[in-house]
Simulated assay, not measured.
Amino acid sequence: MNRIDRLTAIIIYLQGRTYVTVEDLSERYGISGRTVYRDLAALQEAGVPIGSEPGRGYFIVKGYHLPPVMFDRNEASALLAGERLMQKWNHTEIGKSYLSALDKVRSVLPPDEKEYFEIQDEHMQAFHYKNEHLPQPDDRIFVWMQKAIFKKEVIEICYESPYKGEKITRNIEPLGLLLKDNQWYLAAWCRLRKDYRMFRLDRFHDFKLTGKKLPDSSDHTLKEFHARNLDKERELTEVTIWFKQDMVRLIGDSKYHHGWAWEKEVDDGLEITFLTSHPEYLARWSLLWGNGAKVLKPESVKEKAKALVKELYEHY
């Protein structure tokens, strides 16, 4: 991206946010903090009313706007690809809003770009695996949670525990919505457990505002939640499993869902190394392949697999 395009992009980025930090701009455009300061100074010298507030960041003075910005074909195509990914949620409020926004994008495209967009539309499709056994989240919940996060209020939830299958009631501080493994979660601070937790949206049975406002500068943030989770992910166990050659094709992409790290071919099959924070679960998964798979290391996971086999033998 040349500097003129970057300066324009920075104005657009600032217009869409209340405050923006130097770190945000540095990471977004792949430039140093010094370059960010130079770019902001250049925009101010050109008459763009950019202000700053200590501890919060930079902002554009209210009332200033660039003329309407046109989308180029690559940007429009990227939005179209996003729409295909969103199709799974087309029946929800967020899905309907995305479709409405995309229609507005179509309406402002120049004739040549519109033709390109329509051809892409006809030749782009997404196939989603539908698991009928999984409950679907309430259509209202996603938008409701967005509003609760904006209101900065404690919410009371009735939630089905994934471990015991029982309903639990909690007062939580909502922090953000996360997409993980094709499921939506609410990241929150649990006031009972006094710790960060993730709650899957399709396990909510009820949810309501409590009227208890959160402070503007809360100690519990999505950034801290993310940092805590990164620390947990760093505590990974390296597990190597051998797979018989005729099993490799059957495994397919499922290996990527279990922490695939690398693999190497051997004379009688494939050795795959996983990095996982759930080694016991990986041991259980390895048993799906019968004598077509064998845990090679570490010893603790090998012993766990043996214990599971013994347990199954005694059970049957």
Rank of each mutant, 00 (worst) to 15 (best):
S26F: 06
E27K: 10
E27F: 14
R28S: 11
Y29T: 02
Y29C: 01
Y29I: 01
G30I: 12
I31C: 08
S32Y: 15
S32R: 05
G33F: 15
G33N: 10
R34Y: 13
V36F: 15
V36A: 07
V36R: 03
R38T: 03
D39E: 03
L40I: 01
L40P: 00
A41P: 04
A41W: 06
A41Q: 07
A42L: 06
L43C: 00
Q44N: 06
Q44G: 04
E45R: 00
A46F: 01
G47E: 09
V48M: 04
P49T: 03
P49A: 06
I50M: 11
G51P: 07
S52H: 12
E53S: 07
E53I: 04
E53M: 07
E53A: 05
G55H: 14
R56D: 10
G57N: 10
Y58H: 14
F59T: 06
H65C: 07
H65D: 09
H65E: 09
L66K: 11
P67N: 08
F71S: 04
D72T: 02
R73H: 00
R73M: 00
R73A: 01
R73K: 01
N74E: 04
N74P: 00
N74W: 02
A76I: 03
S77E: 03
S77H: 02
A78V: 14
L79N: 03
L80Q: 13
L80K: 13
G82Y: 15
G82R: 13
E83D: 09
E83K: 14
R84H: 08
R84G: 05
L85R: 05
L85C: 11
L85K: 04
M86L: 11
M86F: 10
M86S: 14
Q87Y: 11
Q87A: 14
K88H: 09
W89L: 08
W89E: 13
W89K: 06
W89H: 10
N90P: 01
N90W: 04
N90K: 13
H91R: 05
H91T: 02
T92K: 00
E93V: 02
I94G: 00
I94Y: 00
I94W: 01
K96R: 14
L99E: 07
L99I: 11
L99Q: 10
L99W: 05
S100C: 02
S100P: 01
A101S: 12
A101P: 03
L102D: 07
L102F: 12
L102W: 05
L102T: 07
D103Y: 06
D103W: 04
K104L: 15
K104C: 13
K104F: 15
V105E: 11
V105N: 10
V105H: 11
R106F: 12
S107D: 04
S107F: 04
S107A: 14
